[in-house]
């Protein structure tokens, strides 16, 4: 498997040949086209509610939104008419990893304010390293704890960033 991810339509085709389980079709581009058209429609509808300009010669707050609506609509139709074959869905096992890291990151961001920076970062690093294929638990725990503490020192201590303290409120300076 190539380390390079799909960068151009060209490498994508090569990419997919080495991976028989990857689904290749023009469906993906058709889906993208529909999404672009829906975006155009949504933006156009929103722009309808924008107020008129308050100064005579000003084209107004809705002018650029209209222009972008038109551009998205034209580009969406073009994509619908000329879809390229592309590989979008990776194999099922890979999909699960992708979903797992995404959920993990979202939960991490959500817990940041509640647990505080150090505990939530420690927990995230442990889970994520495990997900990345790390085996040795002791090493993972140690590295995660040190990284979390070091980052806190760098950002809160040296860069003066206000980080949520959470559980450790009052414990750390």
């Amino acid at each position: 498997m190539s380390a390079q991810h799909a960068e151009t339509p060209n490498t994508e085709t090569e990419h997919s040949q080495t991976q028989p389980s990857t689904q290749v079709s023009r469906t993906a581009d058709r889906v993208f086209a529909v999404v672009v058209l829906l975006l155009a429609a949504g933006l156009g509808l929103a722009a309808l509610t924008f107020p008129a300009a308050t100064q005579d010669s000003d084209p107004g707050t809705a002018a650029l939104p209209w222009l972008i609506t038109a551009a998205l609509a034209v580009l969406g139709v073009l994509l619908l008419l000329r879809p390229q074959p592309s590989a979008v869905l990776p194999p099922a096992s890979v999909r699960r990893t992708a979903a797992a890291i995404l959920i993990l990151t979202v939960v991490y961001a959500g817990l940041l304010d509640v647990l505080g920076f150090i505990p939530s970062t420690f927990a995230f690093l442990c889970c994520a390293s495990r997900l990345m294929g790390g085996r040795r638990w002791l090493q993972i725990l140690l590295v995660s704890a040190l990284t979390a503490a070091a980052l806190h020192l760098l950002f809160a201590g040296l860069l003066d960033v206000h980080l949520p303290a959470g559980l450790l409120e009052g414990v750390i300076p």
Binding site: I101, T105, L112, T121, F124, L125, S129, M132, G133, T147
Partner: peptide, 12 residues
């Protein structure tokens, strides 16, 4: 194993 998780933490 540690590089990419730390990368995400740095991004957050």
């Amino acid at each position: 194993t540690y590089l990419w998780p730390t990368g995400i933490v740095l991004a957050v």
